[in-house]
Design a protein around this nucleic acid. Structure first.
Lengths: 194, 194, 194, 194
DNA sequence: AATGAATGAGGATTCATTCAT
DNA sequence: GATGAATGAATCCTCATTCAT
């Protein structure tokens, strides 16, 4: 029997390396060879496991999204009041593994990829739909019929702030970012606008 | 006899072609040959005028930014009340040449480019600084000390909505986008949050 | 306990798979992995048994040739008159396992292989020499001194018809092919030409 | 104005180099780089002119076929009697540029290519159809209704002899090859077989 | 001013082959 | 006996870029 069970380990290493390279190089032009090297293997092996560069990036994207999704679920489970749940939803985007420099940069590239790759587009839409849906549910008890429109706005706001961070030098400041979104949300919630 | 004054015409054609290609292909991988072809000339001539692909993209970026800047100035000049000026600032981002499908996509790629190219980064920062500054000035009469923070928020919101449009299928809807931002701004202005 | 006698079974499966793939893909570019997969094993095992891709192809070639040779011997044993023996020699080439679509295509590739591989060339020459020799022996009672030249012609004719079938669409028609050769042989035998 | 009119020269050089390499290496695995080098240019230029390796091979094939076609037309124009025309048709296949060692080997590879490439298959069929048609026309005055079947036989015979030469060592002997075919044809023409 | 010609360098992808278990 | 793991070495193809004319 050969050495077994390498596949998940290798895939994982490649996905992580891809995200780091994506963040470092800042574009989808990252070489498969570079990613493989960072992951400690030959590029041929990377192909063996992913079949193509594109598939590798999609896997990386799925990984980022699933981590995000898991943290969202975790945060929602903890929040007891609607306010707490909203706060949690916002904070998750700007915390921990979702707000690391390289992950933020990777996101930006996923957006670019989504313009050409259907799979990527679908993933991105899915993420956005979930985010909006979660926000809507949390907002409804507070603002009733305005929930939908506020949720859309909050989602845009989150992504906008996120985008700004993709450009900043130095490590992004999640606390500040979250506060910016929350400030707006508070104002909007208590505001009269539809 | 050599044709006189061809230079600005050629440069312009290339810049416009670059933006269109950028929007169409959706990534910086557009080839110089394709751009030149669309602009009706050989790629060698493109190099003659711009020296490198990067310079060409930077010129395209500057073009987009300067069009935007001009429209902002025009809009500010017309607006008489602070409210009108804010409204104008927001609308400009989602109108006409600033909100065409390809321009939006080009913009996204400028963000990517800014992660590696200092010039591009500077241009983008400059744009953001100006946008914030303009918003601040317009907001001060209405919210006083909260102007700075509201301006930052509005800027993020604008870019966030813009980003969402970059992904949407079909032509982006500028009126809806502008309304989304304005709704938020109104709420924030009348809100109690800092 | 290790299974006993797996070797011949595995080798056989690989050889058969190689021929099928050769016929299907239509060139020597077939990958070892594909052949092994079709044969129901890992490519590593294919290497275990054959040492190299080339050896595997040579084995396949030998297999095809030996099947052919066996059928020739069988046919000759049955034929009682010279005419019957000639007829048998011709028919064998266009019957059964020697005239299956994939075998015909494989044959064509053996010709290509023979241009670079000495072993392959030797095998091919051997086959041709035997075919000619058999034809000569069968022809001698009928045409005496013209046997050698007629045998050469018949051999060329057989291969030419065979080649044409390798290109045809649909399953090759052995009966028609055999008849074409026989018609010529009959004419030549009764002809005045040397 | 740049250096002009290189295209036909380069294409020609590449086609010729491709045929030589094909004959030398003996398989379609010839590297584009090798061909380009032999033709005295970079492989990038080869791609510039042909777009792909496949297209280059197809062009080579077309070249070989068109040379052959031209020689056939020339030979037919000269032949005055049916016998002379038949003789000419046979001899052309075994003379000059159609019977050079490398060209013969190239042919063999065209057959292989035809198994996977539709264009190649079409070209090969076209060649065969024309050869048969020419033979039929020349044979009709001599054998009437048997012309079609004799033409098919002759075509197979020609290709068969040709195939045998692809394997021979040393320069092929065209005269002998032609004689072999002619002997058969004479016998068949004067024979009683249909 | 303008362009066809030309290439070096690089990157994705494939595959025969080896090896540890 | 059997195979997943692993890679070096190609090879195709692309493209930014340069240059002679």
């Amino acid at each position: 029997m050969p050495k077994l069970g390498m596949e998940p380990i290798r895939r994982d290493a490649l996905i992580k390396a891809a995200i780091i390279e994506l963040g470092q190089v800042g574009s989808l032009d990252v070489t498969v060879a570079r990613i493989a090297k960072r992951a400690g293997m030959s590029s041929a092996l990377a192909y063996h496991y992913f079949g193509s560069k594109e598939h590798m990036f999609l896997a990386a994207m799925r990984h980022v999204l699933s981590v995000y999704g898991a943290e969202v679920r975790g945060a929602l489970a903890v929040g007891e009041t609607p306010q707490a749940r909203i706060r949690a939803l916002v904070r998750v985007s700007f915390t921990g593994s979702n707000f690391r420099r390289d992950v933020v940069a990777a996101w930006l590239n996923f957006y670019v990829m989504a313009q050409r790759n259907d799979q990527a587009e679908r993933l991105l839409r899915l993420y956005q739909a979930r985010l909006r849906s979660n926000l809507r549910h949390a907002l409804r008890p507070l603002v009733g019929g305005r929930a939908a429109s506020l949720a859309d706005g909050a989602a845009a706001m989150i992504d906008g702030v996120y985008l700004h961070e993709a450009l900043g030098t130095g490590e992004p400041d999640g606390a500040r970012a979250a506060r910016a979104v929350e400030t707006w949300l508070d104002a909007a919630i208590s505001g009269k606008a539809p």
